[in-house]
Design a binder for these strands. Structure first.
Lengths: 226, 226
DNA sequence: TAGTCACTGATTGCATCCAAAATCAAGCCG
DNA sequence: CGGCTTGATTTTGGATGCAATCAGTGACTA
């Protein structure tokens, strides 16, 4: 009856974890589109391994919601309906402020400076892909100081699941010249700097909600993979 | 580029899923204690299968948080620290009311009658194990009408992860003659019957928070597995 | 005597092979 | 001519065997 030491260790076989990491990046970068078929043997050949660690990798990504597996049929990159997306954003709206509450008091001044820089860089950025990277970096860095065992990973998974769809509708919203997102970001940084975690959480919740509501006016975004 | 039909299908190999289901039940029923070692070959022999579907099962349960796997070392039934438990209850406090909000308007009158019956049965129950079953049934039945794709499963996982520790401290709290939990249950049923979802959500949040706060006064419960 | 190192046993991880299930296309029947 | 059934192909699922890694024990040295 020996205890597993700590959560943060490599929990899986090296090969399986490597393949999972690369496939995850490929999906998040848009290399694999939602709905795309994933064949085990292709991945095995690509990584010079057998199909067994590939199966492990697929199960890991399935657990993260990035991949959908059907018995005796195969694996596909997960797709979201509009309802799914709204559900995930309702979750984000409730969970991310909680995580920020854990992180806020532990953020160093330097970390807050970096968040400020990211917010400014986002405003200056004109490239959608760059904006997506900066936005993700801004939010996840804001949570990075939190010492949680499940919350942090869960939030990252929520971001990963919605990544491709964020890409799709960011192209629409940015052209509309919506400035409120940038405004929110600066409000959050300001609250964090004043060590007013409650205010930061409040603005974050509104920030996430705003995106969801805007999306409801652009349901055509969800004609992507389905 | 063919779509996976629907979420609710068997997504895994039959053998792996069967083993996972039985192991899950064994863990939830307390047959395996937190911190207990799980050997692949034992499970394989027990189910008359090879170690391969067993590994699949372990990965599934790891994804659900019930099992902790370390590379080249083995699998253990997950243990929780007091901080972990509080984190999970903070999550429940935010997520379960959201799920109840999805379910409430879709609950039939018969379903609400059943909830009422469960609440009464809990009050009458003197056996801890029976109480745990009824409590779980009460809550999860209350959410059962929700047509969600991730929220419902997530909440079930939160319940499963905390199951063993609920068992441990329920023995303590019940002896103290705390009646507020029963009071909450009836308030929730009443609100549901009046189709006042907001009130039901509010009471549910308080109900979950109360348990967390009570637990903070009994940290000795967490001397269980580690 | 306490700390370190090497060795042994046990357990997991991966590769190969075979079986089972689903997909897809062609042929058949209504 | 369209829908259904049937068969071949493709792809996944599982069993066995071997290699790699880790835990635990004992002896050796300072």
């Amino acid at each position: 009856m020996r205890q597993p030491v700590t959560e943060s260790e490599r929990t899986h076989g090296a090969a399986g974890a490597r393949i999972a990491a690369r496939l995850r990046d490929a999906i998040l970068s848009g290399e694999y589109a939602p709905g795309a078929r994933i064949r085990q043997e292709d991945l095995a050949d690509l990584h010079g391994a057998s199909r067994l660690p590939v199966r492990d990798a697929l199960r890991m990504l399935e657990a993260e919601g990035l991949v959908t597996v059907r018995a005796n049929a195969g694996a596909w990159v997960s797709t979201l309906t509009l309802a799914d997306f709204e559900e995930l954003y309702l979750l984000r709206e409730r969970v991310e402020p909680l995580l920020l509450g854990f992180s806020a008091p532990l953020l160093s001044e330097e970390a807050i400076d970096r968040l400020d820089g990211l917010a400014l860089a986002m405003e200056a950025s004109s490239d959608v892909e760059e904006f997506l990277v900066l936005d993700r970096e801004f939010h996840l860095s804001g949570y990075a100081a939190a010492r949680t065992s499940v919350l942090g990973d869960f939030v990252t998974q929520l971001w990963n699941r919605t990544q491709h769809y964020r890409r799709a509708f960011t192209r629409v919203f940015r052209d509309e010249g919506d400035r409120s997102a940038h405004h929110d970001h600066h409000l959050i940084v300001g609250a964090l700097r004043r060590r007013d975690a409650e205010e930061a959480e409040r603005v974050l919740a509104i920030h996430i909600r705003r995106t969801r509501l805007e999306l409801e006016r652009h349901p055509e975004v969800f004609t992507i993979g389905g």
